[in-house]
Amino acid sequence: MDQSALLAVLLTIVTASTPLLLAALGELVTERAGVLNLGVEGMMVMGAVAGFAAALTTGSPHLGILAAAAAGALLAVPFGVLTLNLVANQVATGLALTLLGLGLSGLIGERFVGQPGVRLQKLQIPGLTDIPFVGPLLFGQDILVYLSIVLAVVVSWVVFRSRTGLILRAVGDNHASAHALGYSVIRVRWAAVLFGGALSGLGGGYLSLAYTPQWIENMTAGRGWIALALVVFSSWLPSRLVIGAYLFGAVTILGFFVQGLGVGVPAQLLSSLPYIVTIAALVVISTRRGRARADTPACLGQPFVPDR
């Protein structure tokens, strides 16, 4: 393989991994607070359509980014009201949220189908970006790629080093104790759910603004579910999440690449690779059950009702 082909592959891996990383980071924070939101797919696809629409109507991809995050957070609001305030079942509500997001985005996006979108520009730093091979890879990405890495570092620091993160983990580990100590469990969880929604929306927005700047119905194509699996895969650690997201991005792209080389493997098998790897990863993790359970936020998915 020559160098330019390798560069192309690596660049696409970055683009394929970033939406996974963004959405999974948000879900990681949500789950650290003890809330299981299975609506990632729905929030991503809403982010995709909102980002596309905003960028197209205003001509600014940056407004598109903001709109994507806002749309994801907005869709998380009914989830929060139902599961946190009205104590509905989190799994059922999350699944409903995905269905709602997919349907709603199809409706909103109907008139955008087939329209060319506004692409988020890649960074161009004179001198640095021009360095052969390394330049485009390290200094020629779009801002969301850098944002996703910065966010991973920030989330990691906040969760494990700051008081805010300590409270977040406490609420996820034992909500009754956190309540007894005087922390507002519901408020912390609301913040985590909204953050998770915004980052899922951002991940979806990346798809319609940078990955393929157009709107296609159901364009998230199951990435929300992969993001959910990644959170478990990473044992709720942001550093491992970065590795996991890039691993899955790489598997996806290598599938396409192998197809392009004309290897005699059925295309369907190759495009199902990421999902097979997801299942394999989950199986491996669940066989180390003891350890995985120790990492799991103990209150994950459990409803909380403060006593009177």
Binding site: L166, R169, D173, N174, S177, A178, A180, P297
Partner: peptide
């Protein structure tokens, strides 16, 4: 009933 956080 202890109000401790096991994972911390």
């Amino acid at each position: 009933h202890f109000s401790l956080f096991e994972a911390l």
